[in-house]
Amino acid sequence: MALSREEVLHLADIYHIYLSDDEVEVMREQLASILEQFQVLSELDTDDVTPTSHSVPLTTVMREDVSREPYPTEQVLSNAPDTYGQYFQVRTVLED
């Protein structure tokens, strides 16, 4: 059972990633066959089980609030695809 084209496009839309028509087709089949493998989990009763998000029992790790020298702006911008003065530059965000 494949996912619908609309379902795949909806996921791509949530993530802000463009998929070509061919990619959508391949994804419909492949995601469905992977999701099918997950059905086995329904065999297990987990009603009273606490979820484990992390295997180290640490919560709210704090550190001393010590100020440090920041990286110079030109270094921070050195990997940016597009800059304007001391800023990252992006294309239009709000259209008219």
Partner: peptide, 10 residues
């Protein structure tokens, strides 16, 4: 569901 089964596996 996966996080809960993770607890069981641990």
């Amino acid at each position: 569901k996966a996080l809960k089964v993770r607890t069981l596996i641990r």
